[in-house]
């Protein structure tokens, strides 16, 4: 047997300190592993999503130029649907992970932190791609002398507002992703009926983000009805951040004491 107590050796940290260090390292590892899994798996499929979005955009451009007149952004639609893609990924991914994460000695806390960190990374990177594509499209259209007005429905007018596109799309991506995760865990812990009953609750952050960012036909109409259509972009973005925070709070409520289901 080796001398585990290290008696007589170099002075060692007290066990309490050592334990705190081990626990902290373990927490970081759990957070990192969760975030890496979320980001990796999302982008693994996300590459295909963007490839298809680009292809669809290309087809729209081709169709329009053949018809003789390019007057609508080709990428606004496909790129704007990134949030829906992430909503689905948010539903699909966490359930396979949470079981293995807890079974390998992880905590619900590190799972939550990792999921939120992963959602942030996914949100920013997807927002970045969306903004880059919008900006590139604008640049291309300008070069070719195509004067297009973007359809209404966002805080920005077109892809030249790179920063604004990035921020708006990032907020959407984070909120949709986390709400998807919340829905998945709601079904996991409460089953079919209650899970469905909790659906509207999990969708509150999504509705809030659409409202404050005055996004799309419904978002705009809703904002107008509440008299919020005049608010500045920055105020809208602040509201978007609140929506994301709300999504985190809801996810926390669902995750913090979720029991692992028995194996059938």
């Amino acid at each position: 047997m080796t001398d585990l107590a290290g008696a007589g050796g170099a002075p060692r940290p007290t066990t309490e300190q050592a334990r705190r260090a081990v626990v902290a390292a373990h927490h970081r590892r759990g957070v990192r592993a969760t975030a890496e899994y979320m980001v990796g798996a999302t982008w693994y499929i996300g590459v295909w999503f963007w490839a298809i979005a680009l292809a669809v955009g290309g087809i729209i451009v081709a169709a329009q130029s053949r018809a003789g007149d390019v007057d609508v952004s080709a990428l606004n639609g496909p790129a704007g649907s990134a949030k829906f893609f992430l909503f689905v990924m948010g539903i699909v991914l966490p359930l396979t992970l949470v079981v293995v994460h807890l079974a390998s000695g992880g905590t619900r806390r590190s799972f939550l932190h990792g999921t939120v960190a992963g959602a942030a990374v996914v949100g920013v990177t997807f927002g970045l791609v969306a903004a880059l594509l919008a900006w590139a499209e604008r640049w291309l259209y300008d070069r070719l002398g195509w004067q297009t007005a973007w359809p209404h429905g966002q805080l920005y007018d077109d892809g030249s507002q790179f920063g604004l596109v990035l921020l708006v799309q990032t907020v959407f991506c984070v909120v949709y992703y986390l709400s998807g995760t919340t829905i998945a865990l709601g079904y996991y812990r409460t089953g079919g009926w209650l899970g469905t009953a909790l659906l509207p609750l999990a969708l509150v952050p999504v509705a809030l983000s659409e409202l404050v960012l005055q996004s799309g036909f419904f978002g705009e109409a809703f904002a107008r009805a509440l008299g919020l259509d005049g608010t500045s972009a920055w105020l809208g973005l602040a509201g978007g951040v609140v929506a994301a925070a709300l999504a985190v709070v809801l996810l926390h409520r669902f995750v913090r004491d979720v029991p692992l289901r028995a194996v059938d």
Partner: peptide
């Protein structure tokens, strides 16, 4: 419960193994 020190040092192997069924076993 939610005690990182305790759970990091406790391994429960259940039937089915709590693995990623859809990925190669080496990932798990």
């Amino acid at each position: 419960f939610e005690n990182p020190w305790a759970v990091m040092h406790t391994q429960l192997v259940r039937e089915g193994g709590d693995v990623w069924g859809d990925d190669r076993a080496k990932d798990t």
